[in-house]
């Protein structure tokens, strides 16, 4: 179990709802993933097309918690207004706060992120900021009242996995009591397992499942990998070492001769 602002969840996989080949595949993938939380967004609604209304009906059928994002916002002002609209629309104090610095890397704009987080926390939001592994940004976000931090593993949709493993390890060590969720850049179940082995509380992903050859099967693969990674962390991993260390007992080795020991 892990906590998000005092609420406990069993599944450590948070799944995005975008880019699936069909609404039916999205529904099946969410079910196969066992995710209890899915991310959603808000976009301009056409009076003629009304795409959002149908999408919302589908999400309601899933019976999961929704975590609205502020994807596409480039300033604190835009992110705050988007979060306010999301709170009314989805009836939740949660917001996955994104303030984007650059369209090529989709990296967080950390100054605007801290500014927006401070404003939203003061308004009663429970902020889940999409950030980097930068410790000073994490400190500022925690001071602003963020009880969850969501560092990227690598750029959104890049599938490159944990490109700064040491940085993520350090962040975990500095914030032992904060809920840390890896958000973005995960491409393979093994990468998600690696994040969990570092002691991260959960993983949020979208593209790796939605764009997989078989999204439903991949959703299940991620669910199992995340569970395995968590079990591995809880069990306590052994430390890597430079040289070999025999697992079979040396004592009693047949034909053993002392002069072979250097």
């Amino acid at each position: 179990m892990f906590e998000i602002y005092g609420e406990r969840f069993t599944s450590r996989l948070l799944l995005g709802t975008a880019q699936y080949p069909s609404p039916a595949t999205l529904k099946e993938a969410v079910e196969a993933s066992s995710a209890e939380i899915v991310t959603v967004s808000l976009r301009r609604e056409s009076a003629r097309m009304r795409a959002g209304q149908g999408f919302w009906e589908l999400i309601e059928q899933l019976g999961v918690r929704v975590l609205p994002n502020t994807a596409g916002c480039h300033t604190a002002k835009e992110a705050v207004a988007t979060a306010e609209m999301a709170r009314e629309l989805f009836d939740t104090p949660w917001v996955k706060l994104e303030v984007i610095a650059n369209d090529d890397t989709l990296q967080p704009e950390l100054f605007g992120l801290v500014e927006a987080a401070s404003i939203l926390v003061a308004q009663g939001f429970q902020v889940l900021p999409y950030t980097t592994e930068d410790l000073s940004a994490a400190e500022r976000l925690a001071s602003a009242g963020c009880r969850v931090l969501m560092p990227w593993a690598s750029p959104i949709g890049s599938a490159r996995g944990l490109i700064n493993r040491d940085g993520l390890k350090t962040l975990r060590a500095y914030f032992p009591d904060t809920t840390l969720i890896i958000d973005a850049g995960i491409g393979a179940p093994s990468q998600a397992a690696e994040a969990m082995e570092l002691g991260y509380d959960a993983v949020l992903l979208n593209t790796a499942v939605a764009k997989a050859g078989d999204p439903v099967k991949m959703a299940e693969a991620f669910a199992r990998a995340i569970e395995a990674g968590r079990l591995g962390f809880e069990a306590g991993l052994i430390e890597p070492r430079d040289m070999a260390s025999p697992s079979t007992p040396v004592a009693g080795t047949p034909f053993f001769k002392l002069d072979r020991v250097s």
Partner: peptide, 10 residues
């Protein structure tokens, strides 16, 4: 004026 609705998101 902005009028927005729920949509798929990551």
């Amino acid at each position: 004026v902005e009028i927005v609705a729920p949509r798929q998101g990551g």
